[in-house]
């Protein structure tokens, strides 16, 4: 082998590498343009996962501002008590980060869904709750009795504090026959740990 051939070898290698990178670069570039994913902006996707109670427990005036803050300010995703762990998991899944526990500084996950209820006899028509409601779910006018549109109420309880006569209660949503459904069966581990439950179960199933 001469020096000449070593140089040739080097040249060939360099040229080959350059060519290869050019070709693959072109392919990648083409693919990036051709198969570009038109995704939703991340804020919209996060907002879609939030429960939309607009309760402000996260420290932001509404769900969308919180979504914005998660993106812009890197706000933690575990500040939403109404959404609870399910929302945190969904957010973590979306953002591809490990799911933290709910930050209890912002409140606890409610066990039952509630709606605001105005004791109408006591309402003095001050409109303070109407101003406070983030989803305009309270109807009424000054000096006239107010009422809550129960189906639109998100249960955020922002209206309770401003009421001067304390006539707003947060009532649990009653369970209805139409809402009833089978619950997920207990796992065998649970059943084995608490055999007593099965016994009462069976007792319950024998006709009364």
């Amino acid at each position: 082998m001469t020096d000449m051939s070593a140089l040739e070898l080097l040249l060939t290698a360099v040229i080959a590498l350059v060519l290869l990178s050019a070709i693959f670069g072109a392919i990648l570039g083409f693919a990036a343009i051709r198969f570009k994913v038109e995704g939703n902006p991340l804020v919209d996707q996060i907002d879609a996962l939030l429960p939309q109670t607009q309760c402000g427990q996260c420290g932001h005036p509404g769900c969308r501002p919180y979504a914005q803050a998660i993106i812009d300010e890197g706000e933690a995703i575990n500040h939403c008590p109404p959404g609870g762990q399910a929302t945190i998991n969904a957010l973590a899944n979306l953002l591809d980060i490990p799911a933290p526990e709910l930050d209890e500084e912002h409140g606890e996950e409610a066990e039952v869904k509630t709606v605001a209820y105005i004791r109408e006899a006591e309402c003095i028509g001050c409109t303070k709750c109407i101003v406070a409601c983030p989803v305009d779910a309270i109807l009424g006018a000054a000096k006239l009795m107010h009422t809550v549109i129960a189906v639109e109420c998100t249960g955020c309880d922002l209206c309770v504090e401003p009421c001067p006569v304390d006539c707003i209660d947060m009532l649990p949503v009653p369970g209805e026959l139409a809402d009833w459904h089978w619950s997920t069966p207990r796992s065998s581990v649970e059943l084995l740990k608490k055999p007593g439950i099965i016994a009462t179960d069976r007792h319950g199933d024998v006709a009364a």
């Binding site: 089978w182 619950s183 069966p185 207990r186 439950i197 009462t200 179960d201 319950g204 199933d205």
Partner: peptide, 8 residues
């Protein structure tokens, strides 16, 4: 529902 029901 306190008691678990047996499903079909």
């Amino acid at each position: 529902m306190a008691l678990q029901r047996i499903t079909s």
